[in-house]
Design a binder for these strands. Sequence first.
DNA 1: TATATTTTTGAATACGTATGCAAAAACGCT
DNA 2: AGCGTTTTTGCATACGTATTCAAAAATATA
Lengths: 328, 328
Amino acid sequence: MKHTVTAKDVAKLAGVSQSSVSRVFFEGAKVSEKTRAKIMAAAEELGYRPNEFARSLITNRTKIIGIVMKGVHNPFYPQVLKQFAAAFKEKGYSMLFVHTNNDEIEAEDVETLLNYNVAGVIITDAVMALNVGEEFKKNKIPLVFFNRKLNSDEFYSVSCNNLDAGRKVAQYFFDQGIAEMAYIAGDADTSTSRDRQRGFQEVLKQKKAAYRHFSADYTYNGGYTTAMQMIEEGNTPPAIFVANDIMALGVLDALKKNSIQVPEQTKVIGFDNIEMASWPAYQLTTWEQPIDEMIEATLAYLLAEIAEYTGAAETFEVDGHLIERSTT
Amino acid sequence: MKHTVTAKDVAKLAGVSQSSVSRVFFEGAKVSEKTRAKIMAAAEELGYRPNEFARSLITNRTKIIGIVMKGVHNPFYPQVLKQFAAAFKEKGYSMLFVHTNNDEIEAEDVETLLNYNVAGVIITDAVMALNVGEEFKKNKIPLVFFNRKLNSDEFYSVSCNNLDAGRKVAQYFFDQGIAEMAYIAGDADTSTSRDRQRGFQEVLKQKKAAYRHFSADYTYNGGYTTAMQMIEEGNTPPAIFVANDIMALGVLDALKKNSIQVPEQTKVIGFDNIEMASWPAYQLTTWEQPIDEMIEATLAYLLAEIAEYTGAAETFEVDGHLIERSTT
DNA sequence: TATATTTTTGAATACGTATGCAAAAACGCT
DNA sequence: AGCGTTTTTGCATACGTATTCAAAAATATA
C-alpha cells in the first residue's frame, strides 16, 4: 500500500508539531537549531519530501516555469530549452514543456499553463493572440517573449538587436566591395526576420546598393529550394544574408551542388550560430545570438516579477556579433 | 487583486453545491443535464478552471509526465520530445521537462519528479542508478526507458531491435561484396551502441569478415575526429557502420575533406534517420528507428500502468528498416 | 531571583477540490 | 395517487501544507 510520508508523520517521530516540520522545510521560517536537527533526522529516516501540490495550494504559487516552443527542428531552440532548464533548475524551478503545433499558441496550451498556475511563462517561437496575453496579465503571471520583439509594449520581450545586426551585416558585405546583395527571409510574420531585413535593407538603400528579396520559412529545405530557384534563374548574387543558420546551411548545400564557389563567387552569412554552423562541412559565417545574455535577462526579469509582480514591460535587446568563418 | 475563481463561486452563481460543480468537471461523475448546463454557463461566465493542485492533492494523482533528457545536441531527442508532447497532450497530460547534465540522472532530478508526483516517467538518454529506480517503484510510478535496453528486467524499456539492426547492416554490406568493415561506437555505456555492435560483429565473425572497432561518443565531432584519425592512419575501410546519424555526418564530412569518394571508396551507414540524414548534402543511408511505434508503445504502457499499476516490466523492441540513400 | 523581553512552539484554520453518505428528487409501475 | 426504485444532490470531511495567534520556553535585564 502506498503511504506517502507526510509532515505529520515526521512530526510524530520527532516529537514536535506539524507546524515545526513545515517551518523547517519552508525557507525563511525560523526554528531553533535543536528542533531543526531532530526534524531533519526524522525526515531523513522516513524519506519525507514536502508535497508540492499541498504547498502550491496554500501559497498559491508554484515553482514551475512554462516554456512554449514550436520549432524543434531548428537546433537553436532545443539549445535554448536546455539552457533554460539548467538555469531555472539552479533556482529551484522546474520546466513545463508545452509544444504548439500551429504557429499560434493554442487555447488548450494556455489553459494548461493557467491550470498549473505556472510562476512564469516563456514563449519562444510561437505567436500569441493578444487576448491570450491578457489572460496571463489578469492572473499576474509574468510572460516573456524570447527571441521575438513585440510591436506592442505590453509585454517583456528579449531578443537580439536584429535591426542593428542586419545593418552590420550589410556594412560588412559592403566593406568587402559588394554592391548587390540578397536577403532570404524566414517566416514573414516573425519580428526577427523582419527586423534583420529592415536593418539590412536600410544600409543598402543608403549605400545605393542593389537589394533582392527572397521569402522562405526558417527551414533547411526552405533555404535549399530558395537557393536552387535563385540559381536556376541564373543570377546568383555575390552575397546572401540568410535569416537563420539552418536555412543558410540549405543555401550552402544548394550552392555546392551547383558548384558555385563560396565565398569566391557568393558569400553567405547566417544568423544564430548554431552548433552546426561550425561543422567542418559548413564553416558558416554567422551572426551569433548571445544566448547566455538573453537567457540571463529572461531569468532576471522572471524572477523579479515572480518575487513581486509589477507587470512592467520592456523590449530588451542585446547585441550579438559576427563570427567569421569561411563562407565570407 | 488576484482572485482565482473557485468551484464555490461557480456553485453560488449557479445556485448549486460545490460538489455538483466538482462533478461536472470530474469526468466519470454523474450530474443531470439540467444542472450541468447551469453550471457550465456559470463556469463560462466566471472563467472557472479547476485548480490542478487541489485536485492532485486529493486524488493523489497528476496529469504530468516527466521526461528526462540529456542529449539535446542529437536532433533525434528533440524530435522525440516533440512527439511525446503531442501524444500526451492529446491524452490530457502535460510534460515536465527534466534536463540532466551528467550522464547519470541526478538525485535532484529524481526528487523533482517525485515532488511533483508525476504520473509516469520517460527516461531517454540518461543513465539511472538502480536504487533510483526503486524509488519510483516504491511510489508506484511507472517508468519507461526510451531507446535504452536494460540488462535488468526490472523496468519497461522500449527500443529499436538494435541487435538485429546491426546484423542486417552487416549482411547488407556483405551482400555488396565487402569483407572488411568498421564500426564507430557511441558512448560505451549505452545499450544502444553495444547492441548495434554485437549484431554487426556477430555476422562478420560468422562470415569471417574483418572487423575494426573505433570508439566515439555520439557527437558530430566525435565522428569527425575519429574518421580523421582513421584516415590519417592510412587504411580507411570500405564500409563503416556508425552508431548514430549525427556521428555519421561527421564521418562523411571527414571523408569528403580527404576526398574519399562515398560510396565508391567507402560506404557509410548511420542510425536513427534524423532529418539531416536526408539533406541533399549528406543523403545518408541509415537505419530508421520507428519513432512512431516506439512512442506508441511507450504511451500505451504508461497509460495502462497509470490506470492500474502492476509494475510489469518488459523489454519491448521494435524493428526498424534500412533507408537507402547515396552513401551506400 | 524576579521580571521584562524575545524567541520558539503548537493548536487551529485555510487553501480548492473529490467523495462517501444520507437526504431529496425524479422516475417507473400498478 | 401511491409506492418502490433509481438518480441526483448537498453536507461534511479529507488531502498535506503554510500561517496566524496565543501560549510556552528561552533569554536578557534589573
